[in-house]
Design a protein around this nucleic acid. Structure first.
Lengths: 221, 221
DNA sequence: CGGTAAATTGACCTGGGTCAATAAATGTGG
DNA sequence: CCACATTTATTGACCCAGGTCAATTTACCG
């Protein structure tokens, strides 16, 4: 695993690491910072697919597709570690336990995607935004234990909208409502979850890093 | 691979193979028929996550979670081949090329999920239904080459709605409109794509089984 | 200290939801 | 094969969550 993190590269906030439909063959591990991936539809609207945090692998679809199905852009200054996809081939051959773990992570991400699918298909604007806030806070806390109920949402309201399938205007209205309901407090970009239990209820939120069962994993070679 | 398909089991249409939140440890290969997976939200609404076709692996999240995150139910009579998840552990250890292929399929499925995410978040009701029709026809054609532009949608309009985040009533209206626009024809459950090019344009549809690049796969052991 | 991006808010609009009635299809027991 | 019961499809009337447009205000940045 350490070998993947050899050649770190620093990126400024707002750097496009990969553009939709561009050809590519490199993968990355995100070591520091926050990024996102999105697609643009042909009416010009944007759907944010995923937020990316330290430890996440970026551009994994390079394993499969000639051209990128998504754009990846940094939301803060970031450190990434590029590696060639042939490394994955070698890893699968030589490190069964590690490749099993990659499959597990993939599976978790897939379930998280289906959660968002259900949120977009079947929940209200308020619930989707509540879920987003919880998700971001939880992901941030995984790499920064000092984060409690308050954190800086590094997203514009337009980005929140593009992630939740809403307009920036309506995001603003819902944030205000969540505040009036006493579920969150806001101060500039800083959000405090003042009633996390009720927020989680409003959001239908399930933390997919809980409830794992990994006894079947093969031993390390 | 053949070993996975040893003990085939026949299931009647409408059989629940796995229920959300039930504990489990078995995986399946779907050999014949069509199934779907869905979640129920606590207001009682349903989101269909995925339709399943021959060759698909079912209940893969058993690899990871103690309790199932989704319900799986057959939409037609089906043949499934159950196997224990320990088989996957063995497979990863002994068959690198095969496990790489599993990763590739997982990745394709993930990209297909993000396509649906973008559809739910950012496209109109008509576009989502058009995309669903194309997707189902294409998946059916992969195992039944006799299928051309006409096929039997084995879904009720309510199911179409639960897959696309719409109500059954609105699905009905949109199907009628697609028909009036000359993009499809309908006769009972049978759908004919009378203008596939325009339907694909309306749907923003991308076939994710095209444009693959698999040169990096490790050789068979 | 301007100048631009982001947040906020009001007024108004619309795509898709809700409710309800009817018709068509499908299934079932006898 | 038939009569009835249950789903499913269809349609009209009306409603509302969230979108659109436009005007300010506030925050950020060189």
């Amino acid at each position: 695993m350490a070998r993947l993190e050899e050649r770190p590269r620093e990126l400024r906030r707002g750097t496009i690491l990969l553009r939709e439909n561009d050809p590519f063959s490199e993968l990355y591990v995100l070591q520091r910072g926050m990024a996102m991936s999105y697609v643009l539809l042909d009416d010009g609207s944007r759907q944010i697919l995923r937020f990316l945090f330290p430890g996440d692998m970026l551009a994994v679809s390079a394993l499969v597709y000639r051209d990128s199905p998504e754009t990846i852009v940094t939301l803060t200054d970031c450190t990434v570690c590029p590696f060639d996809r042939s490394v994955i081939g070698a890893l699968i051959t030589d490190h069964p336990r590690l490749s099993a773990i990659i499959m597990v992570v993939n599976q978790i991400e897939k379930v998280a995607l289906t959660d968002r699918l259900a949120a977009l298909g079947r929940t209200s604007a308020k619930a989707r935004i509540a879920a987003l806030l919880l998700e971001i806070r939880n992901r941030m806390r995984m790499t920064d234990k000092t984060i409690g109920n308050a954190f800086t949402l590094k997203l514009t309201q337009e980005e929140v909208g593009d992630a939740t399938g809403l307009t920036a205007v309506h995001v603003n209205r819902m944030l205000r409502q969540l505040e009036e309901d006493g579920l969150i407090a806001r101060d500039n970009g800083r959000v405090t979850l003042t009633n996390e239990a009720q927020l989680a209820r409003a959001a239908n939120y399930i933390n997919r890093f809980d409830g794992l069962d990994l006894r079947w994993l093969p031993a390390a070679r």
